[in-house]
Amino acid sequence: MAGKRAVLIAGPTASGKSALALELAQATGGIVINADSMQVYRDLHVITARPSAAEEARVPHRLYGHVDAAVNCSAGRWVTDAAAAFSEARAQSRLPIFTGGSGLYFKALTRGLSAVPPVPAAIRQGIRARLERDGVEALHAELSERDPDSAGRLKPRDRSRIARALEVIEATGRSLNDWHRDGLPPLLPPGQFSAVFLAPERDALYARIDARFDAMLAAGALDEVARLGARQLDPLLPAMKAHGVPALLAHLRGEITLAQAAQIARADTRHYAKRQFTWFRHQLPEFEWVEPEQAREWLARRLD
């Protein structure tokens, strides 16, 4: 790893990223730093397949379950937390190993991030209340008038992104496009990291996704989601949209059977995996794609 400051391990959900990161951290004395946007939430342990307590005890793990589900952990918040974890690893002469499947987090890490300031809670709540009262079409029409560039890029029924774009322009008087032009520098510039994307064969991956959801149910995912639902949080919060959560909440409300909820959750997760393949291929070409079975050899060559 001469000249490299970090290792980045990405890949679709259920591709074996966490196990590989744990193995590398044990071999090098490194620190595993989470780069998965759902595993940051403490309320979502089983349903997001976070590392177990025993696994976390084997090597230092950072940024797992450190954010409450009532908080929207933006990419900006994550980068700030990641910078602190990175500094801790460097101060201890440990190899930082970032692992996860959230492309936006890795892009922020290696390309930098727009400098959008925090949106006041009152503005966010006002936009969300209007979304519920007037509907997403009305807010998209307003966005078309106030920020036509953003409105043109968004699907008219993309509730979360339309609300976000309106929040930013309401809070700052500037569009998201304007803020994106005034970005923050990357934590890891080019040449200072080795990056791998685990690319398993699709049918095998989908079989693993299906089997893993069954294992989540056996491990208590339904009870975990029930506790989350009892908090009555804003359904637009990221934690409330984690794969499997909406379907299991629908089951708990008596709207669908558990078998139907599981079928929906498996399908949603498979579709997400497809999007991960596409996103990394087009957005982060610096990641080298390898089959999971070849990943250890790939890492060994770069650790020499």
Rank of each mutant, 00 (worst) to 15 (best):
residue 200 P to R: 00
residue 197 F to G: 00
residue 133 R to P: 02
residue 161 R to N: 13
residue 166 L to H: 02
residue 123 I to P: 03
residue 174 R to G: 00
residue 117 P to L: 07
residue 167 E to S: 09
residue 160 S to G: 10
residue 123 I to L: 09
residue 192 Q to A: 13
residue 144 S to C: 12
residue 180 H to P: 03
residue 101 G to C: 05
residue 100 G to R: 06
residue 122 A to P: 02
residue 95 L to D: 00
residue 144 S to F: 08
residue 132 E to A: 15
residue 149 D to I: 11
residue 171 A to P: 03
residue 165 A to T: 03
residue 138 A to T: 15
residue 178 D to S: 14
residue 126 G to V: 02
residue 186 P to H: 02
residue 104 L to I: 14
residue 152 G to R: 11
residue 85 A to S: 15
residue 90 R to H: 10
residue 119 V to R: 04
residue 128 R to P: 05
residue 188 L to C: 11
residue 157 R to G: 08
residue 118 P to H: 09
residue 160 S to F: 07
residue 116 V to A: 09
residue 185 P to K: 07
residue 131 L to H: 12
residue 194 S to C: 04
residue 125 Q to H: 11
residue 93 S to R: 15
residue 145 E to C: 07
residue 84 A to S: 12
residue 125 Q to S: 14
residue 99 T to P: 01
residue 149 D to R: 14
residue 123 I to G: 07
residue 112 G to C: 00
residue 163 A to G: 07
residue 119 V to H: 07
residue 166 L to R: 00
residue 144 S to T: 15
residue 174 R to W: 10
residue 140 H to C: 02
residue 145 E to H: 08
residue 134 D to F: 03
residue 172 T to A: 01
residue 184 L to Q: 15
residue 134 D to C: 06
residue 189 P to L: 11
residue 181 R to I: 04
residue 129 A to R: 13
residue 195 A to Q: 06
residue 140 H to A: 01
residue 154 L to P: 07
residue 91 A to E: 13
residue 181 R to M: 13
residue 166 L to E: 02
residue 126 G to M: 00
residue 170 E to Y: 02
residue 112 G to W: 01
residue 175 S to Q: 09
residue 200 P to Q: 01
residue 168 V to Q: 10
residue 134 D to W: 02
residue 154 L to V: 07
residue 137 E to M: 10
residue 88 E to Y: 13
residue 184 L to D: 12
residue 130 R to N: 08
residue 141 A to F: 04
residue 89 A to D: 04
residue 155 K to D: 13
residue 199 A to F: 04
residue 165 A to E: 13
residue 139 L to H: 03
residue 184 L to V: 14
residue 151 A to S: 09
residue 157 R to C: 05
residue 85 A to L: 07
residue 110 T to N: 01
residue 188 L to V: 10
residue 117 P to E: 08
residue 122 A to I: 10
residue 96 P to K: 11
residue 129 A to I: 00
residue 88 E to R: 09
residue 132 E to N: 14
residue 98 F to M: 09
residue 202 R to Y: 03
